[in-house]
Design a protein around this nucleic acid. Structure first.
Lengths: 148, 148
DNA sequence: TTAACTGCAAACTATTTGCACGGCG
DNA sequence: CGCCGTGCAAATAGTTTGCAGTTAA
């Protein structure tokens, strides 16, 4: 099984921070890295469990927390539904637009926000450190489905 | 107690849809309308309870669900924390920049966001309905305090 | 009058924690 | 070998549901 560079990056980060590279953590990271879409803890657990049946749900939660603390995954939760997770690509900061009907998420990047942040900093004197931006609405498929 | 036009609007919408205007629902709507910030169900319950001690948490949940279905409130959950609710204003939309040291909040409006929303809508096909934008950082006073 | 609404308690779902055992470094 | 990490079960947090009594229209 070839390790993707994405996985290597995560393993390296874990080791660098002094965390052990256990079989379980490898399995969780592999499940995340081979998924193209966001996964809920339960979905992730199902995939991990298929590869390594002895890994518990608790470990999935603990590993997610760890990866989140190390900023290796991206967590978003929509409309109070279960949060979903995705391995963070080394690339830059992005935002989401979320469908409130089906939960489908599209990513986008915008430098308008960075500009706004700079403008705001100079106007208010704040040192701007981070921001949350999330759009929600109805995706094309659901619009079609609902109107028909 | 003077009813704000915001409350009137909600009451009217409820009646229009055939729902009863109970004392409990009035209290929940009043608590929402007199709050400037987003409230979690628990926070909302605390405020409602202060005005009308016999209103139960369950009713708060049920009323929130109802108001959400009628699109009278806006629900947002960030980072898997409890969802928060805010009465939808027919008019202006604004955003916040929050100081992570002292909690001080500055409001601002931006048409850059509206433009971004329109651009996003045309690019993704989504019907954009709402968005969250919140900056956080350090306010001028705290910056001075910390650096000294 | 009467169907909708409410409070309570209990059920349910998602997540976290305590503890003894097991395995990575 | 020592200690971090794990699985299990139990605890917790947030939300929903069943039911009998109450109330707005």
């Amino acid at each position: 099984m070839d390790q993707s560079s994405l996985e290597k990056r995560v393993f390296h980060a874990l080791r660098r921070h002094g965390y052990k590279l256990t079989r379980q953590r490898r399995a969780v990271v592999e499940a995340l890295s081979t998924s193209t879409c966001r996964l809920t803890p339960a979905e992730l657990y199902a995939r991990v469990h298929a590869m390594a049946p002895d890994v518990g749900l608790v470990t999935v939660y603990r590993t997610l927390r760890l990866l989140l603390d190390l900023d290796l995954i991206c967590e978003i939760s929509i409309d109070g539904r279960q949060p979903t997770y995705l391995l963070r690509r080394p690339t830059e900061h992005h935002h989401h637009i979320v469908c409130t009907s089906c939960g489908r998420v599209v990513d986008f990047t915008s430098d308008a926000i960075e500009m706004l942040a700079r403008q705001l900093a100079s106007e208010t004197g704040y040192l701007v450190r981070s921001h949350v931006l999330e759009f929600s609405g109805t995706c094309p498929a659901c619009r079609k489905r609902i109107s028909s």
